[in-house]
Design a protein around this nucleic acid. Structure first.
Lengths: 256, 256
DNA sequence: AAAGGAGTTTCCGTAATATGGAAAATAGCA
DNA sequence: TGCTATTTTCCATATTACGGAAACTCCTTT
């Protein structure tokens, strides 16, 4: 009965193990076998054996007191080795540092994955009131300057395959873009001006301005941004850093 | 024939998949199926099926031109979610930033895993001549100030299980500690003074000073350090930052 | 253009493997 | 001490992953 649908076969035990890792990554706390078993609909012994395998290689760690499991450092090491992000972070870091220093705000680097933006690196503002984002964070692309800067430069075909007709857009704040039409219009403008602005669309009280970074072939491979509290990082302030951001973006793009 | 030795059984396909990921992480470049198959002694179709499974979940990416594979962003995301490192980085980052700014050198955070030190976070010096280390890097513990700061505070039992009698120590430079006796003596001193110094033991031209961070139970859970070019970051300079480092270490330790 | 070659992908029968249920062990709590 | 909730181990069985070889793709060479 294998291959009954057109789909190619994946190795089930690997699939389960990866699902388990992902479950642990979402579940912030240590998790026991029973709980995992219930959530993933796998037998107790199956979960146990998978965890044993993962544990013996350092992908999960077992708290010997509670017997529960959490992600292990091996994953951190592997994550740091991902070549594509490594190169991006390496090249971009000095520029982010410079931006953060000259603006006193937080500077970020992110890429687009599907309809989500993934933060690869951030240099936090030295101010006490600051916007903190952790590397690795994912957010809906249409609610963030970074996401809009990236979405604006993907092909029409790609865009259509991501956002199906009349699909409702999740709103993170009352100011988030909520309809596909609105998004399209907005992205057109972003493409024209070369940068994207987010005025409390991601979170009330936070503004952000972002420009994409282009690869050899003209594709937008990542984006950098500056975020700050709306009270301090006003539209005016964003206007002031706009040119600097665009200059830096070109400098970075030249290295790809 | 299962379980013939006392060892518990791991799930082989998962084991293979993890081995494959690790192979890709060491192999900096994109790698083809044949090469992987040869190195890991697995059949071509096996490698292909494993990669297909990993690919469909974003753990590896296939370059459609060359057909070759590399690690995918999913691993980066997972790596960022590892709870233990996340917390450490979060709490330590502002202190590292402060240290780097006040010294103009690079500040690092690392943990001990086995006989290796893993860098969790680094804030680079603004100087042009600077020591750059990437997060995720692993180095032999006995050759780095960070490692020595951590080794000095593990229990005798742990130390003995790590460094078997008469085991030769790898030397990264001519100044590296090369005998177990020497290391023991050195660590005793580190424990007394509460900080570790590395004078070109890790790399010629680089000096480093490090102090451990202690958890609730008094265990050394991580270490922070400042590194710089030996020409600029001299013994004198290290002496000057010593106290600041130790104060900060206490402040951080109080949060665990 | 056509043939050759190196690599990837698919197919298939078979042997090995992972599976889940249940028992055993362990820990936590009343 | 006994009871409950979990984790861990064991086992027979059916499912699953396996590797060899064929098919296919994409370059390179002549």
């Amino acid at each position: 009965m294998e291959n009954s649908t057109g789909k190619k076969e994946r190795i089930k035990s690997i699939d389960k193990a990866l699902g388990l890792l992902e479950f642990l990554s979402v579940n912030e706390q240590e998790t026991g076998i029973t709980e995992i078993s219930k959530n993933l609909h796998l037998g107790l012994s199956t979960v146990h054996r998978i965890l044993f395998t993962l544990k013996s290689r350092g992908y999960v760690i077992q708290n010997l007191n509670t017997k529960k499991y959490r992600l292990g450092i091996k994953l951190f090491t592997l994550g740091c080795a991902v070549q594509s992000t490594k190169r991006l972070v390496e090249i971009t870091k000095p520029y982010l540092k410079q931006l953060s220093q000259s603006t006193n705000e937080t500077a970020n680097l992110a890429i687009l994955e599907g309809k989500e933006v993934i933060y690869l690196d951030t240099i936090g503002s030295p101010e006490i009131l600051r916007t903190e984002i952790m590397a690795g964070t994912r957010t809906p692309a249409h609610c963030a300057a970074l996401g809009k800067a990236l979405l604006a430069f993907i092909s029409d075909g790609e865009f259509k395959s991501l956002y199906k007709k009349d699909e409702p857009l999740s709103s993170l704040t009352s100011k988030s873009i909520s309809s596909l039409e609105e998004l399209k219009k907005h992205l057109k403008k972003v493409k024209e001006q070369g940068y994207a602005v987010d005025r409390e669309e991601y979170k009330i009280g936070i503004n952000c301005i972002s420009v994409p970074i282009f690869g050899r072939n003209g594709e937008a491979i990542a984006a950098i941004s500056i975020t700050g509290p709306a009270s301090r990082f006003t539209i005016d302030e964003m206007g002031k850093v706009k040119d600097k951001l665009m200059t830096i973006s070109k400098e970075i793009s030249n290295q790809f």
